[in-house]
Amino acid sequence: MSEESIISLKNVNKWFGDFHVLQDVNLEVKKKERIVVCGPSGSGKSTMIRCINRLEEHQEGSIVVDGIELTGNLKNIDNVRKEVGMVFQQFNLFPHLSVKENITLAPIWVKKMPKAEAEELAMRQLEIVKIPEQANKYPGQLSGGQQQRVAIARSLAMNPNIMLFDEPTSALDPEMIKEVLDVMVDLANGGMTMIVVTHEMGFAKTVADRMVFMDEGKIVEEASPDKFFNNPESDRTKLFLSQILHQ
């Protein structure tokens, strides 16, 4: 593992039953690096990033996040999860809590932050995602784009070093995608380490430091965006790009 790597996956293997979903995956992510992961559905990209905060368990190989190796050790898992924020395709806001409560919940209960301080923090995060006026509404009263921005604010409130995005715009209407991507671009420009699984190639071209293309559980190609889009090496990548860019 190189010194500045904040995430390091080495020969990671995982099976769902007999299905070999991750096959010898190797990935090094440096601090402040922005990685965009793409690939056809079922290629294991979501599974890979879900292994990084242990929502899925890998069966072989090693995953080290910020110097902590992910094993069965529950304390290590909790520590990694405090470092790593995650945004989901389906937002996964807590529907029984208001927007503000969604954001303050983890700081208050996990970080033991005083309530007033947590609320102030929540308002700051809502300013960052540009919806402070929605603080007292419930998730069910918001549009998809607004919900996803609340989900981002909720993750950011834990002050993570790394953010994982699992197809954050796939469940959104076209006109809402932009408002979420804008927030993510701001975040990237602010120096956050990010791994983003997405099919938004425009976004990838703007912010990615490196593209990772996966197929059938393997990383097929890793390249700078420039090389990836203009001059990919593998035929599988070319086929994928021709389909996704010309649809």
């Binding site: 905060n53 929502l55 909790d78 999860r81 405090k82 790593v84 924020g85 995650m86 989901f88 389906q90 996964n92 806001l93 807590f94 919940l105 983890a106 209960w109 996990v110 989900a151 909720r154 993750s155 834990m158």
Partner: peptide, 22 residues
């Protein structure tokens, strides 16, 4: 939905906090 468990876990909540609060 399983997403509720995942969101709670990804925020670093323990088993009991996740169940009691979410």
């Amino acid at each position: 939905p399983p997403g509720q468990y995942e969101a709670a876990k990804s925020l670093g909540m323990s088993y009991w906090r996740m169940n009691l609060l979410i």
